[in-house]
């Protein structure tokens, strides 16, 4: 085995490390590619900034449940057509919206900020009772001009616990786990 002889220990180590690195990268790529809960693709390239900042709409216009429900709610396209019955701009997305809204089964907006099933979160408790601003968990979603593929703020358990600790709110496992 001549090749064996040529490779010095350093190069051999480098080769091994490279292989491990490639395998790790491959594993990650495989997991992402075949992830059943992949990137969130919305039917319409909704422009939050235009609606919230420019048009001055309230969050509850579309997310109508946030004040007194667990979920904040997502609008269906029928709600959009309340304003966009006729084209208001020349935006191709708007044209797409009007077209989609008239189909038999219009596609729905998909949830972007998602919690696993075993976590209980109530918008009423946090927004109405505790008075948290939306940005605490949703970040600068109001500034976006197109739907982001993933959440702007990664909320993990530590995020919740830190926030509770900062605000001196008790942390009890079953208050959020179910």
């Amino acid at each position: 085995m001549n090749v064996d002889e040529k490779l010095g220990p350093t190069r051999r180590l480098a080769l091994g490390a490279l292989t491990v690195l490639m395998a790790v990268a491959g594993f990650a790529a495989g997991r992402v590619t075949f992830n059943p809960n992949g990137a969130v693709v919305q039917p319409i390239q909704f422009n939050h900034r235009k609606h919230v900042k420019d048009a001055g709409l309230d969050c509850s216009t579309c997310h109508q449940y946030y004040a007194d429900h667990q979920h904040s709610g997502l609008p269906d396209l029928a709600l959009c057509t309340g304003c966009h019955q006729q084209p208001m701009t020349k935006s191709p997305e708007e044209a797409k919206l009007i077209k989609l809204a008239t189909t038999a089964a219009p596609p729905a907006f998909r949830k972007l900020f998602r919690l696993p099933d075993h976590a209980y979160y109530s918008h009423r408790r946090h927004v109405t009772l505790a008075g948290l601003p939306c940005t605490t968990c949703h970040g600068a979603i109001a500034e976006t001009t197109a739907p982001p593929p993933g959440p702007l703020v990664q909320v993990v358990m530590k995020t919740c616990l830190d926030c509770h600790a900062r605000r001196n709110v008790p942390t009890n496992c079953i208050a959020c786990h179910r």
Partner: peptide
């Protein structure tokens, strides 16, 4: 290595 990793 990458292939096996991807598969896994």
């Amino acid at each position: 290595g990458a292939g096996i990793g991807f598969g896994l």
